[in-house]
Design a binder for these strands. Structure first.
Lengths: 208, 208
DNA sequence: ACAGAACTCCACCTAAAGGTGGAATAAGAT
DNA sequence: ATCTTATTCCACCTTTAGGTGGAGTTCTGT
C-alpha cells in the first residue's frame, strides 16, 4: 500500500471544514493531517506538518487566503496548494493564481472532481477548470484598473461622494472625476452605481 | 439503542453537502436518509423520506430555501427544519423564520453546536442564536420598506436611472424620486450608491 | 533620450440626483 | 366613520455627477 496523501484543510467555517475533513477521511489514499481557520494558522500548520497538498479557502478572517499562499510559497516554493472557493466571480482567484496556487475548485463541483484534482495536484499536475480559464483569459484581455482607480472604486462602493473621496486621498475633486471617468469606461458601465455592483459582482471589491 | 435521527440535507454545493453528509454520518444517533440540491428536490425528498429533521441552506438555484420551507410546511406543518446559512447579514433569515423554520445556524458555528441543535430541534425545541435574535429585534424595530420601495431599490442596485425606473414601473419620475427619498431615509443613507450597498449588505436584494 | 503609463489638475458644460413642501386617491384597519 | 398607510403626482430649487478636451509631471522600460 502506497503512503496516503497528507492534506491540510484551511476554511474558516468550522462546519464546512469539519465536513471536508470527514469527507476526505473516507477516501482510502488520503489523510487530513491538519486543519486551519485562517491564513496565519495555515502557515503555522503547514510549517509543522509539511502536507503534500493544501486545500485553501480564499475568504478567511485576519490573514486571507491569497496572503497565506504567498507566505507559504515564500518558504516552500514547491508547495502544492488547491484553492477551494464558493464564488466563481472572484477577483481573488486571479491573485491566487499569481501567488502560485496549483488548482482552483469551486465548492459547486462534484466530490469526484475534488478527489481526482487532489490526486492530480499531488502528482505535480496543474488544473484550472475551463470556466475559470475562460474568465482568466477574458480578464487578462480586459483593461486593468490602476492602483488609484481601485482606491477610488473602493470608496465609491462604500458610498463616499466625489468630494469625500478627494479629501480621503488628498487630491482635488477634478482628479477624482478623471479617475472615475476612466474606471467607468474600463468597467463598461455609465455611472457609479453600476461601477459599485460591477465591482462587487466581479469580486474586485468586497463588502466586509 | 434508540432509533437514530433521520436527516435530510439540502445544499447546492456538492462538496459542502458531501462534507455535511460525511460529517453527520459519523454521529452515532444520526442517519442522513436523503440529500437535495435545490428547493424542488428538497420538497420531493421530504415527501418520500419524511425525515425527522431537515438541514436547509437558503441560497439555492431555481427554487430557493425560503420557498422550499413554505412548500414543505404547507403539506407537513409539523416539519422540523433547520436553516444553515453562511451569511449572517441575510434578510432571508427573517423570511425563513416567518416561513416556520425551527432553528438558524451559521456555518461559522462549531460542529458541536450543529449536532446539539439537531438533537434539540428533533426533541421539538426551537433555537435561535442570540446574535440572530438581536438582529431580528433590531430589524423589527427598524422601518420597513414598502413593496414599491423594494421594487425601486432593486432597480437602483441593478444600476437603473430614475428615468428608467419610472418607465419600468410605468409611473412618473417624480414618484420615483419620492420613493427614493423615503427609502434613503429608512435605510439611513444619503444617496443611491449607499442604498445599493446597504441593500446588498443586509441581504434585502441579491446579486444573482 | 524617448515613449508610454499613471497621476495630477483645470475650465466648461449638461444631465441627473436629491431636498422641500406640498396634495390627491384608494385600501385597510380601528 | 375616521385614521393610517401606501401610492401617485406636482413645482421649485440646490447639489452632485458625468462628459469633453486639454495639459503638466513623474517614473519606468527601451
Amino acid at each position: 500500500m502506497p503512503a496516503p496523501i497528507r492534506l491540510l484543510v484551511v476554511d474558516d467555517h468550522p462546519v464546512v471544514r469539519g465536513g471536508l475533513v470527514a469527507l476526505l477521511g473516507t477516501v482510502e489514499d488520503m489523510t487530513v493531517v491538519a486543519e486551519a481557520s485562517d491564513g496565519r494558522e495555515a502557515f503555522e500548520q503547514y510549517s509543522v506538518h509539511q502536507p503534500d497538498v493544501t486545500l485553501m479557502d480564499l475568504r478567511l478572517r485576519n490573514v486571507g487566503g491569497v496572503e497565506a499562499i504567498h507566505l507559504i510559497r515564500a518558504e516552500w516554493p514547491q508547495a502544492r496548494i488547491i484553492v477551494l472557493t464558493t464564488f466563481d466571480g472572484d477577483e481573488d482567484i486571479y491573485r491566487a493564481i499569481q501567488a502560485g496556487a496549483k488548482a482552483y475548485l469551486l465548492k459547486g463541483m462534484s466530490v469526484e472532481e475534488l478527489i481526482s484534482t487532489i490526486r492530480s495536484v499531488h502528482q505535480g499536475k496543474v488544473r484550472i477548470p475551463a470556466a475559470i480559464a475562460e474568465k482568466l483569459a477574458g480578464r487578462m484581455a480586459g483593461p486593468q484598473l490602476t492602483g488609484r482607480e481601485l482606491e477610488v472604486l473602493e470608496r465609491i462602493v462604500r458610498g463616499r461622494s466625489n468630494k469625500e473621496i478627494a479629501s480621503d486621498l488628498t487630491i482635488s475633486e477634478a482628479t477624482v472625476k478623471t479617475h472615475i471617468n476612466n474606471l467607468l469606461s474600463k468597467l463598461g458601465v455609465d455611472d457609479r452605481t453600476g461601477a459599485s455592483t460591477a465591482a462587487l459582482q466581479r469580486g474586485i471589491v468586497h463588502l466586509d
